[in-house]
Design a protein around this nucleic acid. Structure first.
Length: 159
DNA sequence: GCCAACGTTGGC
DNA sequence: GCCAACGTTGGC
């Protein structure tokens, strides 16, 4: 069996809820990405995310919004247990222990960019044309990123 | 299966 | 705080 090529992702988080600094401050530098309640985003986590895949950590609903740094997938999908707990904000009674509706992955901190790359700046970059994040009305909280787009953004961050 | 009403996301 | 663009829900 040939080893699958590494894939690239963008994951959104609201920094006033959970920022890249919060991730870096975790004892294990790792968190479980709970609370995703969108089927498309879940399918990406469940079907396509593999350990070792690289992640752009994006700050949404921030001033300014933008890519804050890098992370990696450290554990492949497993049931999002926060969906089972009525006290949890993202509790979903439809999700059953024996057939969980919602899944999550573990994400590990890799690096924080020296500067946040604002969404507005990304919009100016010609070679990022077609990126899901830049599509008008794009709301998907987990989205695949092409290798080319991923590398372009990493390069921007190192300048 | 259609679609209106409603809720959420997230940039501005 | 506004609102456009979605996704979900539920009546029919």
């Amino acid at each position: 069996m040939a080893k699958e090529a590494k894939k690239y992702w963008l994951m959104k988080s609201e920094p006033n809820c959970y920022s890249i600094d919060d991730l870096a401050a975790e004892k294990t530098k790792t968190t479980h990405w709970d609370g995703v309640r969108n089927y498309q985003a879940r399918n990406f986590m469940r079907d396509d995310m593999k350990k070792g895949d690289e992640v752009l950590f994006y700050h949404s609903n921030a001033k300014p919004p933008g890519v804050a740094g890098l992370a990696t997938i450290s554990k492949e999908s497993y049931p999002d247990f926060t969906a089972f707990d009525p006290n949890e904000m993202h509790y979903d009674p439809k999700s059953k222990q024996e057939s969980p509706t919602w899944m999550m992955v573990d994400v590990k901190f890799k690096k924080k960019f020296k500067r946040l790359i604002p969404l507005e700046e990304l919009r100016q970059v010609k070679s990022l044309d077609g990126m899901e994040l830049l599509r008008k009305g794009s709301r998907l909280s987990i989205q695949p990123v092409s290798k080319k787009h991923f590398e372009t953004i990493v390069k921007l961050a190192s300048e």
